[in-house]
Design a protein around this nucleic acid. Sequence first.
DNA 1: CATCCGTGGCC
DNA 2: TGGCCAAGGAT
Length: 358
Amino acid sequence: MWTPEQLHAIPQLLLEWYQANARPMPWQENPDPYYLLVAATMLQQTQVETVLPYLERFLQRFPTVCDLAEASEEEVLRYWEGLGYYNRARYLHRAAQQISRRHNGSVPCRVEALRQLPGIGEYTAGAVVSIACGKPEPALDSNGYRILARLLAFQKDITLSSSRRQLQEACRQILPEHAPGAFNQALMDLGALVCTAREPRCLVCPLAEQCLAFQQGLQASLPVLPPQQVGEKVQDVCAVIEHHKRWLMRKRTDGRLWHGLWEFPRVRVEEGETLEQAARRAASMVGAQVDGFETVAVVRHAVMHYSVTLHAIRCHLCEQPIEGSDTLRWVSPKEAQRLPLSSPMRRVLGKLMQTQKR
DNA sequence: CATCCGTGGCC
DNA sequence: TGGCCAAGGAT
């Protein structure tokens, strides 16, 4: 796999580059395992610049494992709102509760123990133990896989589990025992700053001389990735059901998209269906009969491979009132603002509040 | 192994 | 505007 020359030169050159070019991270002063656990979880599929303000707010509110374990899921989600992948927040919350009970409130520093916890995979466990505990474990993220694939001119799809295993093994062979945390972070910083997905800056790369892809002029066509799905355009409607200046909101509990977040009852517009018909269907989903439809907001957003136009349609409750429950509430505008919402639903609420003022 | 889960920035 | 991408993990 590696030539003897690469085996020695790569970790050396990478660590030297890292000493001069490391991006400052808030945990560098105090690499606490709990801090790293929260940070690594937030950083899953999410860029550093996006995470940092969330991380600060989150740790200020939940400074210890126990603070997080004792909080309500709804409050945890409120602090996660806007970061996406909300299962991460719910798993982290549960992990904190398990650490509280089974590990006396201190985050374990063994990969096998961490991997038992919900939401913690190979990357997150490796990041925590290597950075917070100095243990020689790889922490390969998409940056690491991309860099290793280019260094080795690796020709197979790097998202295959067989490829991942090979690249993890390759990483172990060059992982320095004395500085695993710095090495792992160096891979991520090099991937973010130099060995980028598009237009890698090979002319300033410390590993250019060791990189088989660069030598063969393949850096732009590696790594090999699977073909991706084509985007689909869809229309959604949410029903803003009003009654005595309150709105009927429901909590999503389908275990899928936006699980645990609140919304105005929402449906996908079906083929041949009008927006008003869809609004009736959204209302009937929570047992409400409505009339008096008026579009109050149109919000465009993207979810995964869908491109969504969300129409918020205000309507009035007719006939008997609807009973609230754990997952259904009549809320004042002020109460609505305090609920955890998805980003598009937060924008709908913002427009509603604007029109309310006038 | 395939699919699902968010969002914002960039070009 | 639309596609791509980012400190992945669960089912």
